[in-house]
Computed example of a mutant assay.
Amino acid sequence: MNSALQDDDSDYKKSLRKAQIQLVKLQKHVIKHGQKVVVIFEGRDASGKDGTIKRIVEHLSPRDTRVVALSAPSDHDRKAWYFQRHIEHLPVTGEIVLFNRSWYNRAGVEPVMGFALDEEVEEFLNTAPMFEHLLVHCGFTILKYYLDISREEQERRLKNRLNDPLRQWKLSPIDAKALKRWDEYSKARNVMLRRTQAVSSPWIVVKADDKKSARLNVIRDKLSRCEFHGKDEHGELPDLNRVFLFDERHLKNGMIET
């Protein structure tokens, strides 16, 4: 590794440590004040959700932090109200829960892969904002991140998974179809962002081709949106060119990958 790369890695680790210290302070505040925090991560396959979540929870209390990554719904789940199986995983007072994919599967993977009927998707798009509004009304804080990567970067990462024996657990049959259905996923994403954007639970888009930048910017954005005792008011702010609130104009001006 050359000195420039070493310097970059050293700067990243220092910045990450500072941000993680602030996350610990945030968690202490959440516990003390009995807050309930929901953090949702969505994005294409290989967009970096796992790595970002790992850096967020790395030094947090495992008793008061949970990561939820639900498997495919069972036959029993399919007979239930769509949101029902997610409700049991919501945080209680003093908890932070991170969803690695969430109820938004109904707006992304399911319609693209043919796992949901058009009327089921439409019902979801109509009711998701109401569901989240109710959660906010009941005291939940909801942060929704969409990690956005380019087609070229997704292809590179999926190939790396295929060739890396330590990461092959991440491979799934859906991964193989991700690139072939790029345009379908883009269309579903655009509809999801438009229809489920809300003042109380807005979408926060993260440009994620650079993994380290994405991780830092998600953490810094999260910290900037929460008030807590001991907050570093002079700490690093998120790069607003890399993490920003969704606006429909972003689908046309190149801010979001097409």
Rank of each mutant, 00 (worst) to 15 (best):
Lys79Phe: 03
Glu110Gln: 04
Pro173Arg: 03
Lys13Phe: 14
Ile149Arg: 06
Asp7Val: 15
Thr196Ser: 10
Pro111Cys: 07
Arg78Val: 10
Pro173Lys: 05
Ala208Glu: 02
Thr141Gly: 11
Lys144Ser: 09
Lys25Asp: 14
Leu16Lys: 04
Ala72Asn: 14
Leu179Met: 06
Leu23Tyr: 00
Glu155Gln: 08
Asp8Glu: 11
Glu123Thr: 15
Val39Gln: 01
Thr52Arg: 09
Pro173Tyr: 07
Ile96Ala: 00
Leu193Val: 05
Leu90Phe: 03
Ile21Tyr: 09
Gln27Trp: 01
Phe99Trp: 07
Phe41Arg: 00
Leu143Trp: 09
Glu119Tyr: 10
Ser47Asn: 06
Arg242Phe: 03
Lys28Ala: 13
Pro165Leu: 08
Tyr82His: 00
Lys212Ser: 13
Gln20Arg: 03
Ala128Trp: 07
Ile31Met: 12
Gly43Ala: 02
Gly108Phe: 04
Leu251Glu: 12
Ser3Glu: 10
Glu248Pro: 03
Gly48Phe: 02
Arg167Trp: 05
Arg181Leu: 06
Lys187Glu: 06
His229Glu: 14
Pro129Met: 12
Arg189Lys: 12
Gly43Thr: 04
Gln35Lys: 11
Gly108Pro: 06
Ser74Leu: 04
Lys14Asn: 04
Leu125Asp: 13
Gln20Tyr: 00
Phe124Ser: 03
Ser172Phe: 04
Pro62Gln: 04
Gln197Glu: 13
Ala4Phe: 10
Leu117Phe: 15
Val199His: 14
Phe246Met: 10
Gly254Arg: 09
Asp183Glu: 06
Asn190Ile: 08
Leu70Ile: 01
Arg195Trp: 04
Asp210His: 03
Ile21Lys: 13
Lys222Tyr: 15
Val39Asp: 00
Arg189Gln: 08
Lys170Cys: 03
Val136Ser: 15
Gln84Gly: 10
Val68Met: 04
Arg194His: 13
Glu120Ala: 14
Leu240Arg: 14
Arg63Lys: 01
Ile219Ala: 00
His89Gly: 05
Pro73Cys: 11
Ile53Tyr: 11
Leu70Lys: 05
Gln20Glu: 00
Lys159Cys: 15
Leu147Ala: 07
Asp164Trp: 02
Met130Tyr: 13
Gly43Cys: 09
Lys187Ser: 01
Phe131Tyr: 09
Phe83Pro: 06
Pro165Gln: 12
Ser61Ile: 06
Tyr12Ile: 04
Asp232Leu: 08
Lys212Cys: 14
Val24Trp: 00
Tyr185Glu: 07
Val38Thr: 01
Ser200Lys: 10
His29Trp: 08
Leu90Val: 12
Lys144Val: 12
Asp209Asn: 10
Val37Ile: 09
Phe115Gly: 00
Val243Gln: 12
Arg55Asp: 02
Met113Pro: 09
Phe228His: 02
Glu95Gln: 09
Val24Phe: 09
Pro111Leu: 01
Val191Arg: 12
